[in-house]
Amino acid sequence: MALSNEQLERYSRHIILSEVGAKGQKKILDSKVLIIGAGGLGAPAALYLAAAGVGTIGIADADEVDLSNLQRQVIHTTPDVGKAKVLSAQETMNAINPQITVNTYRQFVDASNIMDLIADYDFILDGTDNFPAKFLINDACVLAKKPFSHAGIIRFKGQLMTYVPDKGPCYRCVFREPPPPDAVPTCRQAGVIGAMGGVIGSLQAMEAIKYIIGKGDLLTGYLLTYDALKMDFRKVKLPKVSNCAVCGDSPSILKPFDYEQAVCKV
């Protein structure tokens, strides 16, 4: 289908790029991205993906908007406090771009629902804040052969990696098992600069766009680390682990499972 004059205008800054063009923009319009977590990372990612014209965006989160979220979760506004995050996110995305479809999943993602949830999507974006969820998303994406972007942020630091099926190491290759509850600080306990979500969440959106249009080098086989205080970006090479429990040569994890959810003590 040819792009309408309105679409040509809305997406002109994309289309004018030789790496995108009308072809790339049509790929973006036809693409489906699932964002798990409508928080510090998911908020900026969702804004940019909606603005870019990603045709179908799924957003999963069980929480409601809290006043303390607004320091960084830029998709929600003050009148949204108390509203389901997925609905608040959907309203903002559709206000930016009424042409896209936003599917909302107001639920915690767990082993019982994750395979069905990711099945319809081309790319998954992990914007969760806890390790059981990060390992669950990793395992499910490896098993379902779905590419995904992992990210984490804390204080003045952030990290990011992209998994592409059969191409690179997975999150479990690097980190093996979730740490025990409270062994590693999360941003609730440790704090985070709001703009960190903007930097790292936007990079996740960028990886999704590059994957969709099939251009450039993805962050597969590397962990990007960002230290804002030192203003230092580093790409650390990641070896693929042949005995990885989920993506290795003889995997022992054959279906997704839940680690006991660490109840965050505030």
Partner: peptide
């Protein structure tokens, strides 16, 4: 259409 969509439409 008007600039910059003129060029974009021609390019497409």
């Amino acid at each position: 259409v008007v600039c910059p969509v003129t060029f974009v439409k021609a390019k497409v």
